Each structure stands twice: as structure tokens, then as C-alpha cells.
Simulated assay, not measured.
Amino acid sequence: MSEMKLSVADITKLMNEMAKTGLGKLVLEDGDFKLNLSAKRPKLAVCTSSEVQAEIPNVPVMPVADMPAESPALSGNVVEAPIVGTFYGAPAPDKAPFVTVGQQVKKGDVLFIIESMKLMNEIQSEFDGEVAEILVEDGQPVEYSQPVMVIR
């Protein structure tokens, strides 16, 4: 039986490739070794066997069964990140945000930007209504289909 050895750099490289391609889940298995990478959650979850945990002790490992439950359901029209990238609420650091909580928006209004692969992608509203919640901070990384904003 061969023994699979992955370094922190190898796992980080896999995670970066997942972020670039938008891949939601990757499972590697070899004998007793199992590595699950999932990008469906706000943070990438890494679940490994105890052998890998001993090899890279500074990386917290959480079995899937022990992961926290999803956040409670959001009420209203949830705007999700259409791509993996970095959230920006304003067109530039010295400019006013596109929208604020309590502001009325119409379908087609720019709500925020997601920077992905050095491109600034303007995300437009698919709904008419009032911005009820902004769920991420400026400059925070977002995952594909992560809730970013609620419009009611």
C-alpha cells in the first residue's frame, strides 16, 4: 500500500486552484488516507486522516460531522456571489459604497464588485427592493454562491 504525503504547500495549491476554477468539492482517497476540500462554505474546510494531521499540526482539522451547522435561513431575496473572489462595496477605497442598508435598489443597479483574477466584476441587482443586510465586509474573500446581501 502506497502512502500519500501532502504538505501544507500542496494543500494550499489545491485550495487556490479550486478558488480559481470555482470547483466546489474535491475528494482524494488512497487507502486509509482521505482528504476532503469543500468550497461551498464561507471558509474552505479541510478534513484529513490523523496521519496528515500529525504531519501538519498547525492546520486545524475538523471532521465533517463536527462542522458547525449552516447559518439560519435568510429572509428576503438573497444575493449570492456568482464567482469566487474578493468583495468590494465601493468602486474605489475613497468612494462612497454602491449601496447601504436601508437603500432602495432597482433591478440592474450595481450592488458591489467581486474582484476575481485581477478583474473587477460589477454585480447587479436581480431584484427591486430595499437592502436589508450586507453579510460580508469590504475586502473579504467570498466563495461561489455565498450569501452576500439580502434585499426585501
Rank of each mutant, 00 (worst) to 15 (best):
M1P: 14
M4W: 06
K5W: 09
S7G: 09
A9K: 12
A9F: 08
D10S: 00
D10R: 00
I11S: 07
K13Q: 11
K13T: 13
L14E: 09
L14F: 12
L14S: 11
N16C: 07
N16T: 10
N16A: 09
M18Y: 15
K20V: 05
G22D: 13
L23Y: 15
K25E: 14
L26H: 08
L28P: 01
L28A: 01
D30I: 00
D30T: 00
D30R: 00
D32I: 07
D32H: 09
F33C: 03
N36M: 07
N36R: 08
S38T: 06
A39T: 15
P42T: 03
K43L: 05
K43R: 05
V46I: 15
T48D: 10
T48W: 08
T48K: 10
S49I: 04
S50H: 12
S50A: 12
E51N: 14
V52R: 11
V52Q: 12
Q53E: 08
I56P: 07
P57N: 14
V59H: 05
V59K: 06
V59A: 05
P60F: 12
V64H: 03
V64M: 04
D66W: 04
M67G: 01
P68N: 09
A69Q: 13
S71C: 03
S71V: 02
L74P: 02
S75G: 04
V78I: 15
V78T: 15
E80W: 02
A81I: 05
P82M: 12
I83D: 13
V84N: 13
T86Y: 13
G89D: 02
G89N: 02
A90W: 00
P91I: 09
P93T: 01
D94F: 13
D94M: 11
K95N: 05
K95F: 08
A96M: 15
P97M: 03
F98C: 04
V99D: 00
T100P: 10
T100V: 12
Q103S: 02
Q103M: 02
Q103H: 02
Q103C: 02
K107D: 10
G108T: 15
G108S: 15
D109A: 08
V110F: 11
L111N: 10
L111Y: 10
I113P: 15
I114Y: 03
K118I: 08
L119V: 14
M120H: 15
N121A: 06
Q124C: 04
S125C: 14
E126V: 08
E126R: 06
F127R: 00
E130M: 08
V131Q: 06
E133H: 04
I134L: 14
L135I: 02
V136R: 09
E137P: 08
E137W: 05
D138T: 13
G139M: 05
E143V: 13
S145K: 01
S145R: 02
P147H: 08
V148P: 00
V148A: 02
M149Y: 10
V150Y: 11
V150G: 11
I151H: 01
I151V: 03
I151R: 01
I151Y: 01
R152C: 04
R152M: 04
